[in-house]
């Protein structure tokens, strides 16, 4: 077994009295896609910033490539590619210049930088926009420039902070495809997200964070089997009437979650549960059976739905 790429033990980050990250432990192995899943304020971004060596740790141990961020920040950053939450692209430069100048911050020779930039723009399908300034690009295009930019130093580790937040579904899928390709090439990805589908799509392993703590850890599949059932039955009885039916409904599933607008019933066989209810003359206004997802895991672990 190789040494893990990132090791964190009892890692803490405080801003004054506020504890953003509260004694977390995790390892990220070479070549895996590792996710931090959680709502805003859960401590995902703070964890990412500490890994990126732009935020000093308050206490605990953190090692990246076996180096300490305090002593070797510069050396670590040289081997990391960062895609920040807000695209911090250089508005005064063109798309191509953005990549080349960024490469120069890594001391990469200019001709190497140009060659890599051309290649990467091809990879993110922006070659024809290379001489445009960044401003008129769409959100998805900007994010792709950010990804290309973070790859220009051929990083051993990529940090992506909410890579698809704020993008339309189509742009998201393009992006997922590109990230998936990177993964196939063996890149190590660490990403944060509050989208369940994204975590399911991209992550080999993830930790669920809430209130600065890690509340669960495992592969997406694993988490779903541990913390949810195979299927979920969603029913609406109309506003204000959902709670009336809780006791009857809880008899057909393993667990019931009450949301303001609907009831969720966790069951191995959703259709079967619905049929049983219908036999007992309990007819919801609408009903839907779906596979359980990380959203359900999250709900189970934190008792609330994810909000942006």
């Amino acid at each position: 077994m190789n040494e893990p790429l990132i090791t964190a033990r009892s890692l803490v980050k405080k801003f004054g009295d506020l504890v953003a990250v509260d004694e977390i432990d995790f390892d990220v192995e070479q070549g895996e896609a590792f996710g931090f899943l959680g709502p805003n304020g859960a401590g995902k971004t703070s964890s990412m910033r500490m890994i990126g060596c732009v935020s000093p740790t308050t206490s605990g141990r953190l090692e990246i490539f076996g180096l300490s961020p305090t002593a070797d920040g510069r050396a670590i950053r040289a081997r990391i590619g960062v895609v920040p939450q807000m695209d911090q692209l250089d508005n005064e430069l063109t798309v191509l210049e953005n990549l080349v100048i960024y490469a120069r911050y890594f001391d990469i020779p200019r001709d190497v930088a140009r060659a890599r930039a051309a290649e990467l723009l091809e990879f993110v399908q922006l070659t024809e926009r290379k001489d445009d300034t960044v401003d008129p690009l769409s959100g998805g295009q900007k994010r792709r420039v950010s990804i290309a930019r973070s790859l220009i130093s051929e990083p051993e580790l990529m940090l992506l902070d909410e890579p698809t937040t704020g993008l339309d579904p189509q742009a998201r899928h393009v992006l997922w495809d590109r990230l998936y390709q990177l993964k196939e090439r063996g890149a190590t990805l660490v990403l944060t997200t509050h989208y369940m589908d994204e975590a399911e799509q991209l992550c080999d392993r993830l930790v669920v964070m809430n209130g600065g703590k890690i509340v669960a850890e495992g592969s997406p599949r694993n988490l779903i089997t541990t913390y949810a059932t195979r299927e979920v039955l969603e029913m609406r009885f109309g506003r204000g009437h959902n709670e009336e039916h809780v006791s009857e409904v809880s008899q057909v599933g393993e667990r019931v979650e009450i949301l303001p607008d609907r009831l969720l019933v966790y069951a191995h066989d959703g259709e079967g549960a619905l049929a049983t209810l219908r036999e007992r003359n309990i007819i919801p206004e609408s009903a839907l059976v779906r596979r359980s997802s990380l959203e359900d895991v999250f709900l189970r672990l934190t008792g609330r739905t994810l909000v942006d």
């Binding site: 990391i80 911090q88 250089d90 960024y102 911050y105 890594f106």
Partner: peptide, 14 residues
């Protein structure tokens, strides 16, 4: 506005 320095600090620049 441009958050240039944030992105610089993510690189080996200090």
């Amino acid at each position: 506005q441009a958050r240039l320095y944030d992105s610089l600090l993510a690189t080996p620049m200090s």
